[in-house]
Design a protein around this nucleic acid. Structure first.
Lengths: 341, 341
DNA sequence: GTGAAAGCGCTAACAG
DNA sequence: CTGTTAGCGCTTTCAC
């Protein structure tokens, strides 16, 4: 049986009393914007606060001030390295600005997401950051909720999900894939196949198209392209299909993301081939596993952390017209695509 | 229709006015503990709230009630899969209890951690969860801060870091390693070497000792044991050293964590050997990469998500005497340790 | 500079 | 059941 009510934290009034000043003075001393407190009383208050172990009640502060020092972050799945890395960037940026981060997870459910935005709105955060690309088409309710939040003075930023009328940070998937194609051609490769994801996903389409565009610049056309799930198994299946087709004159397979590429590598091994030697493989994302697989995977680095950081900056800047920021990617050549010839 | 807000959110009073009832009634309708509101007025209020896009001001609610609906989470690094997975469990548990999660990142700095606890305390969260094993010895100030928080009625839970006088969730590293040894012996292995981490880390010591204990039960003693960094490079170096020593009668190497094991596999390849065929390898943690490497790594699964979930339960239960929960692990046999003979 | 007093938005006794 | 009346802890005019 803990006595809950009795052992409550010291209040500003307690500190004021202890210091022999008024609540107003104590308030000003502890965080008054303009230091209109005499050095003497200031010291008194600070000491009293210290002695009592005072920590200002942020909720009360928020109600009185009408604004909070928090940022709300919404992600699909915090355990997913892609999102946790973005989250890391956001936390970094928020803390630099003296803000606390509140986090909620949607589990990729649009309904849950809507509910969360509604709850979070109740916290009256300084800003709301949405991370993760949506699939559902019914963004109308969400958009409405966000609009309400913004007209009430809130800021919104979105990561890697274009189409919402708010500041948005995303990567240039096209350009990244194009640069990768350039680098591979420079490495001596000429005969390519592409493993694409579902065409409904912008990400997949942009990467596949960008890669093709890069090849085209060198007068090359991909010999084959197969569509598959965005997963490791999808990559495995697609690669297996490709091999069965007897396209054995292909030199390199580009998968639109790393996990697919890793699945493809597994399929190669299953077929008795050695990835990198018998057939080169490249991916996109630079997930942690890319360096753990054998051979290490050539891929395109996505600056997830920087995206988070930039998003929070965008939100805090609070521009009126929704700004769209494209972050650059970079090609990382590894052993899965040895220099050729 | 409704008049456009002047830039701030509609308040409870706005809703009450719109519905033609008192603020008290509106409050009761919107979230009164006991539903003492007539169906008629209830509908009126709900409609008014809907129309105005009302979202209760949680800060005001908190000040009035004296308690919040939030849980504070402190992790070393949210981008680290180990922590992000724990975080996922915590978010899951918190949301199930209708609580919002506030997150802060220490970056493994004890000073920053202390500062964070202090700030977070200001939010008056329902509970504070600390994730991540501390290294520093000066836990006194931190302990004091937490004590103050608890005497003020707050709850504290700790994940994988024994030694603080609060509810703690951790895994049984010893038992896990022991079970792994059992399974490997059952697979026909008899000649082992152990790659341990720095002895100062409880985790490393417990795993190495547990593994040895498991072997001992079968009357087996490890042939060799080398100490190394807790990293992939550490595993690589240790394995290289082991090979150089000419202990070529060893059948299996157990590394106290997966990244070390993966490093060891790389070292084997560098020496022209094939992991799994020429020398079996096993790890501990079951990181995501464990299934991406070739051959897939035999390891011990750590229920990080469950740890988070359990921690939040522990915190919310708020037992008086600090409870210590040991979560079980499980052995996962994969291709890196094929059945022998 | 400093204190008294009036809120911030919401909840929680109290009467009716 | 419902409205009235006090607060919750803190900030912020407004006088002195």
């Amino acid at each position: 049986m803990t006595e809950q009510g009795t052992g409550s934290s010291p209040t500003l009034l307690d500190v004021a009393r202890e210091a022999g000043v008024s609540a107003a003075t104590a308030s000003r001393a502890l965080n008054g914007s303009t230091r209109t407190v005499s050095a003497e009383k200031l010291a008194l208050v600070l000491q009293a606060a210290e002695r009592l172990g005072y920590a200002p009640n942020l909720s009360a502060q928020a109600t009185a001030r009408g604004s909070t020092k928090t940022v709300a972050l919404i992600v699909h799945d915090i355990a997913d390295p892609y999102f946790s890395s973005i989250a890391a960037g956001i936390v970094e940026g928020a803390e630099a600005a003296g803000l606390t981060v509140t986090m909620a997870v949607t589990g990729r459910s649009p309904d849950r997401e809507l509910e969360i935005v509604s709850i979070l709105r109740g916290h009256r955060p300084h800003a709301i950051v949405l991370a993760g690309s949506r699939i559902g088409d019914d963004q109308e309710t969400l958009a409405g909720e966000l609009r309400a939040y913004r007209t009430a003075g809130g800021r919104v930023a979105v990561v890697s999900q274009p189409g919402l009328p708010h500041g948005t940070v995303t990567i240039d998937n096209r350009a990244g894939a194009e640069a990768l194609a350039d680098a591979l051609v420079a490495h001596g490769y000429r005969r390519f196949a592409i493993l694409r994801g579902p065409d409904a996903l912008h990400t997949s389409r942009d990467r596949a198209d960008g890669f093709a565009a890069g090849l085209a610049r060198a007068g090359i056309e991909a010999l084959d392209a197969v569509e598959a799930e965005f997963t490791e198994d999808g990559g495995h299946a697609a690669m297996t299909g490709l091999l069965g087709r007897g396209s054995d004159d292909i030199e390199l397979v580009f998968a639109v993301n790393d996990v697919m590429a890793i699945g493809a590598m597994r399929a190669l091994r299953d077929a008795g081939l050695v990835p990198g030697r018998d057939l080169a493989v490249a991916g996109f994302d630079d997930v942690a596993a890319a360096v753990d697989v054998d051979p290490a995977l050539t891929t395109v680095t996505v600056p997830t952390r920087a995206m988070g950081l930039r998003a929070i900056e965008l939100a805090l800047a609070g521009a009126d017209e929704p700004e769209l920021v494209w972050l650059p990617t970079s090609v990382v050549l590894r052993e899965s695509t040895p220099r050729r010839g």
